[in-house]
């Protein structure tokens, strides 16, 4: 029983570590299938466990927390057509990122600016560059060191949605945020 509890904790820790690298737009990987079900009728260890000791619950909660922090860090922000100004409704999103980055001095991020397919292909690279710069500058103004943030542009080359309506364009006019270092030791801000 002790051994099974220990392996459970290890599994949770592994999930937490993976979670640190998990970008929001990537599909959550399927849980690795158990090697071969034991002939005994023992219930499978982690997934179906519905109760546990305090330490189990704490580990699970910690994993959840890390997943939430990572998701907050990678939430994209969006822009109006041909604009590179941070919108009012995105300030809270960026403030949350600033708090996380302050709580995790080893964390580094990459901000990539994107444009919808309207407008010149080449101008959209410059526009994406300005959008990435706007996201980065906002965080800088919140006290995050510039050296921890890399700003790049993909222009219209990597659309989130391939559709050609306003809903798709609105989705594509964005900054994406990607954790490039410090994901293994993430903690939640106080």
């Amino acid at each position: 029983m002790r051994a099974s509890k220990l392996s459970m904790l290890l599994t949770l820790a592994a999930v937490a570590a993976c979670g640190g690298r998990q970008a929001a737009d990537e599909p959550v990987p399927e849980p690795t299938p158990a090697p071969a079900p034991a002939p005994e009728s023992t219930p499978g260890p982690v997934a179906t466990s519905d109760s546990g000791s305090d330490s189990e619950r704490m580990a699970r909660e910690h994993a959840e927390l890390i997943r939430a922090v990572t998701a907050d860090l990678s939430t994209p922000i969006h822009f109006d057509y041909d604009q590179a100004t941070v919108r009012g409704d995105d300030r809270a999103v960026l403030d949350r990122k600033a708090a996380i980055l302050k709580a995790n001095p080893n964390a580094r991020i990459r901000v990539s600016g994107h444009a919808d397919e309207r407008g010149s292909d080449e101008y959209n690279l410059a526009l994406g560059n300005r959008r990435a710069g706007a996201g980065k500058r906002y965080l800088q103004n919140k006290g995050i060191e510039a050296a921890r943030m890399e700003a790049i542009s993909y222009g219209e080359e990597r659309p989130m949605s391939q559709a050609t309506d306003e809903a798709a364009y609105a989705q594509n006019r964005r900054d994406e945020f990607e954790l490039t270092a410090g994901g293994e030791t993430l903690v939640a801000p106080q």
Binding site: A126, N129, R130, G133, K136, R137, A151, S153
Partner: peptide, 9 residues
Amino acid sequence: YAHSDENGT
């Protein structure tokens, strides 16, 4: 050519 960095393009 145009050079894009954090100061603009």
